[in-house]
Simulated scan of single mutants.
Amino acid sequence: MNRKTLTTIAQQHLHVSTLDMRGNDGLDFHNVCASSLDGALTAAYLAGYAAAMRAAGGSAADVLPTERHTMLGSVWLGEGEAEDWSIDPRAETVVTAPIPEVALTAYRWQEARACDLLIPTAIRQRRIA
Protein backbone atom coordinates (compact mmCIF):
# COMPACT_ATOMS: atom_id res chain seq x y z
CA MET A 1 0.00 0.00 0.00
CA ASN A 2 1.35 3.40 -0.85
CA ARG A 3 0.80 7.08 -0.15
CA LYS A 4 -1.46 7.45 -3.22
CA THR A 5 -3.80 4.77 -1.87
CA LEU A 6 -3.95 6.43 1.56
CA THR A 7 -4.60 9.84 -0.01
CA THR A 8 -7.44 8.37 -2.07
CA ILE A 9 -8.96 6.82 1.07
CA ALA A 10 -8.68 10.15 2.92
CA GLN A 11 -10.33 11.97 0.04
CA GLN A 12 -13.18 9.48 -0.33
CA HIS A 13 -13.96 8.81 3.33
CA LEU A 14 -12.79 11.89 5.22
CA HIS A 15 -13.12 14.62 2.59
CA VAL A 16 -9.47 15.56 3.16
CA SER A 17 -7.87 16.77 -0.06
CA THR A 18 -4.26 15.96 0.81
CA LEU A 19 -2.25 14.22 3.52
CA ASP A 20 0.66 16.63 3.06
CA MET A 21 1.38 19.02 5.91
CA ARG A 22 0.83 22.60 4.77
CA GLY A 23 1.95 24.45 7.88
CA ASN A 24 -1.45 25.95 8.66
CA ASP A 25 -3.77 24.68 11.39
CA GLY A 26 -6.82 25.53 9.30
CA LEU A 27 -5.53 23.31 6.50
CA ASP A 28 -3.81 20.57 8.52
CA PHE A 29 -6.43 19.75 11.16
CA HIS A 30 -9.80 18.25 10.25
CA ASN A 31 -12.98 17.35 12.12
CA VAL A 32 -14.35 13.98 11.08
CA CYS A 33 -17.26 11.96 12.39
CA ALA A 34 -16.69 8.52 13.87
CA SER A 35 -18.46 6.70 11.04
CA SER A 36 -16.22 8.37 8.42
CA LEU A 37 -13.13 7.51 10.44
CA ASP A 38 -14.36 3.92 10.78
CA GLY A 39 -14.85 3.72 7.02
CA ALA A 40 -11.39 5.13 6.31
CA LEU A 41 -9.66 2.78 8.75
CA THR A 42 -11.55 -0.19 7.35
CA ALA A 43 -10.64 0.77 3.77
CA ALA A 44 -6.96 1.19 4.72
CA TYR A 45 -6.92 -2.16 6.52
CA LEU A 46 -8.51 -3.94 3.56
CA ALA A 47 -6.15 -2.27 1.08
CA GLY A 48 -3.18 -3.40 3.17
CA TYR A 49 -4.59 -6.89 3.52
CA ALA A 50 -5.13 -7.12 -0.24
CA ALA A 51 -1.56 -5.94 -0.90
CA ALA A 52 -0.22 -8.51 1.58
CA MET A 53 -2.18 -11.30 -0.13
CA ARG A 54 -0.90 -10.25 -3.55
CA ALA A 55 2.67 -10.09 -2.20
CA ALA A 56 2.29 -13.54 -0.63
CA GLY A 57 1.19 -14.77 -4.06
CA GLY A 58 4.38 -13.42 -5.59
CA SER A 59 3.20 -10.11 -7.04
CA ALA A 60 6.32 -8.00 -7.52
CA ALA A 61 4.15 -4.88 -7.59
CA ASP A 62 3.07 -5.51 -4.02
CA VAL A 63 6.34 -6.46 -2.35
CA LEU A 64 5.83 -5.52 1.26
CA PRO A 65 8.35 -3.13 2.79
CA THR A 66 10.26 -4.34 5.83
CA GLU A 67 12.37 -2.69 8.48
CA ARG A 68 15.13 -3.97 10.73
CA HIS A 69 15.14 -3.08 14.43
CA THR A 70 17.49 -3.97 17.25
CA MET A 71 15.97 -5.35 20.43
CA LEU A 72 17.68 -6.27 23.68
CA GLY A 73 15.04 -8.37 25.40
CA SER A 74 11.96 -6.11 25.40
CA VAL A 75 14.00 -2.90 25.01
CA TRP A 76 14.16 -1.21 21.61
CA LEU A 77 17.67 0.08 20.91
CA GLY A 78 17.04 1.55 17.47
CA GLU A 79 16.55 0.97 13.78
CA GLY A 80 19.12 -1.20 12.07
CA GLU A 81 21.33 -4.18 12.76
CA ALA A 82 22.13 -5.43 16.26
CA GLU A 83 25.90 -5.15 15.75
CA ASP A 84 25.44 -1.43 14.99
CA TRP A 85 23.68 -0.81 18.30
CA SER A 86 25.10 -3.14 20.90
CA ILE A 87 28.05 -5.34 21.73
CA ASP A 88 25.76 -7.40 23.97
CA PRO A 89 25.38 -10.86 22.37
CA ARG A 90 21.74 -10.98 23.50
CA ALA A 91 20.84 -8.07 21.20
CA GLU A 92 18.93 -9.30 18.16
CA THR A 93 17.93 -7.89 14.81
CA VAL A 94 14.19 -8.20 14.23
CA VAL A 95 12.63 -7.86 10.76
CA THR A 96 9.19 -6.27 10.88
CA ALA A 97 6.53 -4.64 8.79
CA PRO A 98 6.99 -0.84 8.89
CA ILE A 99 6.90 0.74 12.36
CA PRO A 100 5.72 4.35 11.86
CA GLU A 101 5.80 4.84 15.65
CA VAL A 102 9.56 5.42 15.28
CA ALA A 103 8.70 8.91 13.99
CA LEU A 104 7.44 9.74 17.50
CA THR A 105 11.04 9.79 18.74
CA ALA A 106 11.36 13.14 16.98
CA TYR A 107 9.08 14.69 19.60
CA ARG A 108 10.74 14.91 23.01
CA TRP A 109 7.42 14.83 24.88
CA GLN A 110 6.56 11.49 23.21
CA GLU A 111 10.04 9.98 22.94
CA ALA A 112 10.10 8.06 26.23
CA ARG A 113 6.64 6.57 25.67
CA ALA A 114 7.51 5.64 22.08
CA CYS A 115 10.82 4.00 23.03
CA ASP A 116 9.55 2.25 26.16
CA LEU A 117 6.09 1.12 25.08
CA LEU A 118 4.83 1.84 21.57
CA ILE A 119 7.80 0.71 19.48
CA PRO A 120 8.53 -2.56 21.38
CA THR A 121 4.81 -3.43 21.23
CA ALA A 122 4.68 -2.66 17.50
CA ILE A 123 7.77 -4.79 16.87
CA ARG A 124 6.21 -7.76 18.67
CA GLN A 125 2.99 -7.35 16.68
CA ARG A 126 4.63 -6.82 13.26
CA ARG A 127 7.54 -9.25 13.53
CA ILE A 128 8.03 -11.15 10.29
CA ALA A 129 10.99 -13.43 10.97
Results as ranks from 00 to 15, higher is better:
104 L>I: 04
102 V>H: 02
89 P>H: 09
27 L>S: 09
34 A>P: 11
81 E>I: 01
1 M>F: 07
19 L>E: 02
121 T>N: 05
84 D>P: 00
74 S>T: 13
38 D>L: 14
126 R>V: 00
86 S>R: 05
88 D>S: 05
10 A>R: 02
100 P>N: 01
85 W>F: 04
35 S>D: 12
22 R>M: 15
111 E>C: 07
77 L>F: 04
84 D>S: 07
85 W>S: 03
99 I>V: 13
76 W>E: 01
108 R>I: 14
4 K>C: 09
31 N>D: 11
13 H>D: 12
38 D>S: 14
17 S>A: 10
99 I>F: 08
105 T>M: 10
108 R>M: 15
95 V>Q: 06
6 L>A: 13
59 S>T: 07
81 E>P: 00
77 L>P: 02
120 P>K: 00
9 I>E: 06
16 V>Y: 11
102 V>C: 04
23 G>E: 14
31 N>R: 10
36 S>A: 11
82 A>I: 00
44 A>M: 10
64 L>G: 00
48 G>H: 01
115 C>F: 09
36 S>C: 10
25 D>G: 11
84 D>E: 10
50 A>F: 06
6 L>I: 09
55 A>E: 05
54 R>M: 12
124 R>C: 07
61 A>C: 13
87 I>L: 09
121 T>S: 07
11 Q>P: 03
39 G>H: 06
123 I>L: 05
124 R>K: 12
65 P>N: 01
69 H>N: 03
52 A>S: 11
42 T>D: 12
96 T>D: 00
45 Y>D: 11
39 G>M: 06
64 L>S: 01
27 L>I: 07
50 A>G: 11
39 G>Y: 02
77 L>G: 00
87 I>S: 14
15 H>A: 14
3 R>M: 03
39 G>E: 04
109 W>N: 15
71 M>D: 00
108 R>V: 15
122 A>W: 01
30 H>M: 04
108 R>K: 15
31 N>W: 08
11 Q>C: 06
82 A>G: 00
62 D>W: 03
71 M>K: 00
27 L>E: 10
